[in-house]
Design a protein around this nucleic acid. Structure first.
Ligand SMILES: [Mn+2]
Ligand SMILES: [Mn+2]
Ligand SMILES: [Zn+2]
Ligand SMILES: [Zn+2]
Lengths: 126, 126
DNA sequence: TTTTTAAATGCAACAAAGTTGCGTTTTATT
DNA sequence: AATAAAACGCAACTTTGTTGCATTTAAAAA
């Protein structure tokens, strides 16, 4: 992988994501960031953090992309095959690391990743 | 529900979606349609077809929204809780109606819909 | 069939989201 | 301290999605 550097913007954005209970979108990060760095830099930092496997992308049912910190259970390879919950009302997106769905892998398809999202009402909105 | 009408644009767009093996995005429909109707009309027709429960939306892992025809198994209520497959290479999105995942619904959450997407390589790209 | 009414459309204008190129700044190695 | 390239800001651009409004059109009513 290409050499990456630690910058103020990168650290700040990663902290925002790590400290957040819910996954954050680019727009949300931008609002929380305001004067820290340019809009474009946020896009580039997010891409870098994803490439470095420090955060992961979550596509919500309405097509919004959100970002959440990865929880490395062991030191080596980890997957993002856990379930996410997207609240219809407050639009929060949460990782449900404990929920592990089971399914039959269809023949003729090579499954590399799974992206499971439940939607409805979160505990705060129920 | 509000009265809806059958128009040339609506019929044509629905045919495109019904005849397609894979789910289609707004952009793809627009290209296939070219001179049939305005860009904005496509957005409005898609919204209408979703509201009428004739097609359903699928959010792909990269945030693109695609549309696929609903398969009503019985005459009455039906769900969209089946799995979708998104190909990394050709970006095709397919409904895998037969795959039925099982999982434990987390406490304190009210689950209304599930959106399960597998990604990797489709049979054509394997 | 003709009239009527509201749904649907096209168009223009706008807003939001994401991308690209490039000159400048900054990180981290030498 | 000097160096190299990663990262940045900024401007310009493309793509995607939304809104208002005058006009057209589908379908119900007369
Ligand atoms: Mn997650
Ligand atoms: Mn489907
Ligand atoms: Zn909520
Ligand atoms: Zn494919």
């Amino acid at each position: 992988m290409k050499n990456t550097r630690n910058t103020i913007a990168k650290s700040a954005i990663l902290e925002l994501i790590k400290n957040s209970e819910v996954a954050l979108s680019h727009a949300e990060i931008q609002k929380m960031n305001q004067e820290l760095c340019d809009r474009v830099t946020i896009y580039r930092v997010l891409d870098r953090l994803v490439a470095e496997d420090v955060i992961h992308k979550i596509a919500t049912p309405d097509g919004t992309i959100k970002y959440a910190a990865c929880h490395h259970h062991d030191n080596h390879h980890h997957t993002h095959n856990h379930v996410h919950f997207s609240c219809e009302k407050c639009h929060s997106v949460t990782c449900l690391d404990s929920v592990e769905p089971s399914f039959n892998v269809p023949k003729n398809y090579l499954v590399k990743q799974v992206n499971f999202t439940l939607s409805g009402l979160c505990p705060d909105c129920i």
